[in-house]
Amino acid sequence: MNDVVIYAVVSLSVIGVASAVILYFVAQKFKVFEDPAIDVVEKALPGANCGGCGYAGCRAFAEALVRSGKEKQTLEGLNCPVGGNPVMAEIARILGLEAEEKEPQIAVVRCNGTPANAPHKVAFEGATTCYFAHSLFAGESGCPYGCLGLGDCVAACIFDAIHMDPETGLPVVNDKCVACGACVDACPRNIIELRNKGKKDRRIYVCCVNQEKGGPARKNCSVACIGCGKCVKVCPFDAITMENNLAYIDFEKCKLCRKCVEECPTGAILEINFPPRKAAAQPGEGKPEKVPSEGVEKNENSNA
């Protein structure tokens, strides 16, 4: 009986020691040289592996940073949207370089097709993915550009930063957003855009991506951009451009003067996080109000 125990202990120990010796030599022989800076840089990164930087993960990004730092002496074009400026500054310090400041950004949903603004005309049924619904029809409201509300963006987000609002049926972005861009890629209709966060989180943007002419656009949604061009004229900074019946505000040029918001006849331009105005103190800031009809009618006539 005792013999068995001894044999077992001895033989297992011998196998263990032998394996350890073999492994040691193999590890020595096949050692791969890796820049120790990569490990340090990787530690400095957030470790979310979100892919927002355009690389397969934080490790791959760290490798790219170190390579770029070594070979080109610059970190230009490389940015971790999750960590933002502090992390990039830290990495630059590790690699002994200058970091370029970048405006923090946030995902912005450019559709306001709530059931009140864009009443549903048909009911969709099927696999709950926007991608499929997009291939099937224009959407429950009939707007071929508007949000389908099935949450491909929500499924794509790994930061818990975008959720469907059950009342409006539209996705809402919260503070957790790091502007990784996953939702932008996921949306089959390119409704989500990364825009600068802006001073005090204040933003002005055209909350519509409809490129139809005014008439058909308004038929489906009361807060659609009808391409009237009033905002373009009123903007003192040339920040607004008009293309395919759709206004676009360049966030680099916009000085947040809010003139366009007042001018927009359909309320398609939204202002976010501004204090309420004195004259038209409406509750629910940023929400579009009743639509003055003058500009719309003119536009429809010009199309007919």
Partner: peptide, 13 residues
Amino acid sequence: IPLLDWIRVGKSR
């Protein structure tokens, strides 16, 4: 299960 819906998504992708 909306099998064909998913397969259509897949075919397109």
